[in-house]
Design a protein around this nucleic acid. Structure first.
Length: 821
RNA sequence: GCCCUGGUGGUGGAAUCGGUAGACACGUCGGACUUAAAAUCCGAUGAGGCUAAUAACUUCGUGCCAGUUCAAGUCUGGCCCAGGGCACCA
């Protein structure tokens, strides 16, 4: 009975190799069992795994293993988000081949993932940069095109000089590029867009159906979609017959207070609206506004500028003649690009009117109104003709109805969401499958001619243009319609297009006839549990939801939402801040595997914090987990000869000590099962592993009173409970105990509700809410018994002496509180 | 400014329904084993008071201030702080 030491390196290597051969995690498309789809956000193959990956994939893996043990047919796939700028930048810097750079990284990281012991079905691997995948990305583009959901237009778009490409709205963070952080400017270009705005309403409404998503993510999406309900009012231009300026407003109630109008510098009719005398300064203002980057425009917050155009509108409510100004606080791509200004009741208009001495009229009155100060609170209408005295809320409706009746208004809903710009002026992406023909114009590539292969005869050393432009062969082709000479679209797609449907491809990854089979995808999707970082709350998660709805409308699938439950895991920190190379506080997974083994890494990364919270990596914590694993291993090796895989005992015939041991095991099964099912609280699951292990150590203290069947039951149950987390340890011990099959094939243990209850409970006795005594009583004693026991307590009698009992509260199986005066 | 999330010992965190606050760890301290160290095992550990140092007893304690209740980390109202998101969106 020698205790053996635990050497994770050899053990983990051995089982990695075995599982590589036996492929125990193959998901079956035809299984009659209920399905469970566990998904991690696919990694970008940057070179090496980091601890954020380890945390993400361990969480998903434990969920997948738990569900498999519970009898589900589990799909747990993995792939590579492998198009994108880093590969191209590496190519430019080291004159390397982006494809080789990417595939080498994938090979290395795949090895690391396997060493982590993930239960992934590698036969379904999807690599977005390979033609057998991007062929279908292009095919999906064509489906959206056919449906009118992909279109090309010239518009002012976000341009990152450093990345030399355009960006989607979602990729501009505080006026800076999401990837490189440099300033974003506007450029007028003809680009491809996906019509995500077509789904604004549905994307917003369906958020309510996503009960398995956190409120933080749903709120972010809600804000991003930005629905607002208001009115459209049209104003006749005094100087120009037949010309109107429509404005969008949520404050129709203030229509009597309009004293001027503002249009954006890019407003479509601005030239018509400018009088010859004002032409010069308006032109100058517009040129200036154009030069400003997004950042500068934001930093100008509160200091508003503008110039008058010289023309006027007539306020149809008051007859007042109001000047029209141009100012960059009006945004061309929201509403109509023109704003009605009510200085007394809008902070921006107020600032502007003060600066340029424009008149103000009060039209809302309330308790807090102060003469000469902006008033944006609730109130009732004044100076508003027939609407005077009306509550502002009611007036919005009444005034708009009046405008409708008189032909110059309507109710309108606006969204902040813009269409998704998907063109990128870069090489390493999926080419946009469209050609331009002098005769036929814009023509989509024939489906049978897909994929449009990325050219390999490109020169990465040429600066200032996309490397794809340097290919001597790629640009020229023939028109699919007329067969004449034509040129290709030289842009590639945003990588977020590739990652908007990868989880669909996994269901049918080898299909070379279709992008996925409709029956198969309907069987597996929606994803039962998605796990990933919060940084994708808007970008990837919104795009994927859009894709699902769009492909549903293309009749490719029959569900509305891709991800039923979403778990956004917290960051991995070290010394209180995010791990990063620049701070030098990173931890290399390879080193941890080497020194402690992957099981220790898995155990530790789940142990100290619940998954959604940030996790602080500490060396002492790793050490502690390694000690626990060794402690478990020693326990089994010491009692190896006593453990029988076929134990058998009658609970009723057990000694008190044995019964308590059995009870402890049932309590553990119950608690661990509940904690995993309830929000995946792995930190408390691991606490329970330790408690049960401690209880078993207690049980074996007296060697003479060990019941081998009870011990076997306890140890084998603990082993199964621990197996989703410490996958190698559990498999190794199980095989050393003589088991022929894998522990990961064994079903999840069941608990007996009666046995998971304590026979004795500790009754808390309080007097006036203060604890006076704790008494052991048998479970399910009657209220009368509990009260009697409580009142018999010496300590309670002491506290009661000289006082009158007002009432007594009894909570069954818990507490008695005696209220006295 | 608006929205979301959180605030509990020296630290990470635990606590179905309102019912023993601090599970389980880390750290620290003490002990056993050892020639010694490592490893391992056992014990103590929220702060304070009273005693003689123990036992016993007792007060305070879940960001702050009120409230509801026999009873509040948990519920209600009002604040403060931290992290995140959105923001000239009319």
């Amino acid at each position: 009975m020698l205790e053996k030491e635990y050497y994770p390196q050899q053990i983990e290597k051995k089982w990695c190799e075995t599982w590589d051969k036996t492929k125990p995690y193959k998901a079956d498309n035809n299984s009659p069992k209920p399905k469970y789809y566990a998904l991690s956000m696919l990694p970008y193959p940057s070179g090496k795994l980091h601890m954020g990956h380890v945390r993400n994939y361990t969480i998903t893996d434990v969920i997948a293993r738990f569900k498999k043990a519970q009898g589900y047919n589990v799909l747990h796939p993995m792939g590579w988000d492998s198009f994108g700028l880093p590969a191209e930048n590496a190519a430019i810097q080291h004159n390397a081949d982006p494809k080789k750079w990417t595939l080498d990284n994938i090979a290395y990281m795949k090895k690391q993932l396997k060493m982590l012991g993930l239960s992934i079905d590698w036969d379904r691997e999807a690599t977005t940069c390979l033609p057998d995948y991007y062929k279908w990305t292009q095919w999906l583009f064509l489906q959206l095109y056919k449906k009118g959901l992909a279109y090309k237009k010239t518009a002012p778009v976000n341009w990152c000089e450093k990345c030399a490409t355009v960006l989607a709205n979602e990729q501009v963070i505080e006026g800076k590029c999401w990837r490189c952080g440099s300033e974003v400017t506007k450029k007028n270009l003809s680009q491809w867009f996906f019509k995500i705005t077509e789904y604004s309403e549905e994307l917003l409404e369906d958020l309510d159906k996503l009960e398995g998503w956190g409120d933080n993510v749903k709120t972010m999406q809600r804000n991003w979609i930005g629905k607002s309900q208001g009115s459209l009012l049209k104003f006749k231009v005094k100087e120009i017959e037949g010309l109107e300026i429509p404005v969008y407003t949520t404050r129709a109630d203030t229509a009597y207070g309009i004293t001027y109008l503002v249009v954006a510098p890019e407003y479509k009719d601005i030239e018509k609206l400018t009088t010859p005398e004002n032409k010069e300064q308006v032109e100058k203002y517009r040129q200036n506004a154009k030069k400003l980057s997004e950042i500068e425009r934001l930093s100008n917050e509160r200091i508003k500028t503008g110039v008058p155009l010289g023309t006027h509108i007539i306020n149809p409510f008051t007859g007042r003649v109001c000047p029209v100004w141009v100012a960059d606080y009006a945004l061309v791509d929201y509403g109509t690009g023109a704003v009605m200004a009510v200085p007394y009741h809008d902070e921006r208009d107020f600032d502007f009117a003060k600066k340029y001495n424009l008149p103000m009229v009060q039209v809302i009155d309330g308790e807090d109104f102060v003469e000469g100060k902006v008033y944006i609170q609730k109130g009732t209408l004044v100076n508003s003709g027939e609407f005077n005295g009306l509550d502002a809320q009611k007036a919005k409706e009444e005034i708009t109805k009046y405008a409708i009746k008189n032909g110059f208004g309507e109710f309108q809903t606006q969204f902040r969401l813009r269409d998704w710009l998907i063109s990128r002026q870069r090489y390493w992406g999926a080419p946009i499958p469209v050609v331009y023909c002098p005769n036929c114009g814009e023509v989509p590539v024939d489906e049978k001619d897909l994929p449009v292969l990325l050219p390999e005869d490109v020169d990465f050393s040429v600066k200032g243009k996309s490397p794809i432009e340097t290919s001597p062969t790629f640009r020229y082709t023939t028109c699919p319609k007329c067969g004449g000479k034509a040129t290709r679209d030289m842009d590639t797609m945003d990588t977020f297009v590739c990652s908007s449907w990868y989880y669909m491809r996994y269901t049918d990854a080898k299909n070379d006839k279709e992008c996925f089979n409709r029956d198969i995808i309907n069987k597996w999707l929606p994803v039962d549990q998605y796990v990933g970082g919060i940084e994708h709350a808007i970008l990837h998660l919104l795009y994927s939801r859009f894709f699902t709805k769009a492909l549903r409308d293309c009749k490719l699938l029959d569900f509305d939402e891709p991800f039923k439950n979403l778990l956004t895991q917290g960051m991995v920190l070290k010394d209180g801040s995010k791990m990063s190379k620049s701070k030098g506080n990173t931890v290399d997974p390879d080193e941890i595997y080497q020194n402690y083994g992957a099981d220790t890494a898995r155990l530790f990364i789940l142990s100290d914090s619940p998954p959604a919270r940030d996790f602080d990596w500490t060396d002492a914590g790793v050490e502690g987990c390694y000690k626990f694993i060794s402690r478990v291993y020693r326990l089994y090796s010491k009692y190896q000869d006593k453990i029988s895989l076929k134990y058998n005992f009658d609970v009723k015939a057990l000694t008190k000590k044995d019964e308590n041991m059995v009870r402890e095991v049932h309590i553990s099964i119950k608690k661990i099962t509940n904690d995993i099912e309830n929000e995946f609280q792995f930190n408390t699951v691991i606490s329970r592993y330790r408690e049960l292990t401690n209880a078993i150590y207690d049980y074996i203290k007296d060697e003479n009173s060990i019941n081998n069947d009870v011990l076997s039951f306890a140890l084998l149950t603990l082993l199964k409970l621990i197996s989703p987390v410490c996958v190698f340890l559990a498999e190794e011990i199980y095989s050393q105990l003589g088991a022929q099959n894998s522990i990961h094939e064994e079903p999840w243990p069941k608990y007996d509700e009666a046995l998971a209850k304590m026979s004795q409970i500790t009754l808390i006795v309080q007097v006036n809410g203060k604890i006076k005594d704790k008494i052991e009583v048998s479970q399910d004693s009657s209220n009368e018994e509990l009260e009697a026991v409580a009142k018999a307590s010496e300590r309670v009698l002491e506290a009661l002496s000289g006082k009158t009992i007002v009432k007594t509260i009894v909570v069954p199986n818990k507490l008695v509180n005696i209220v006295v005066k």
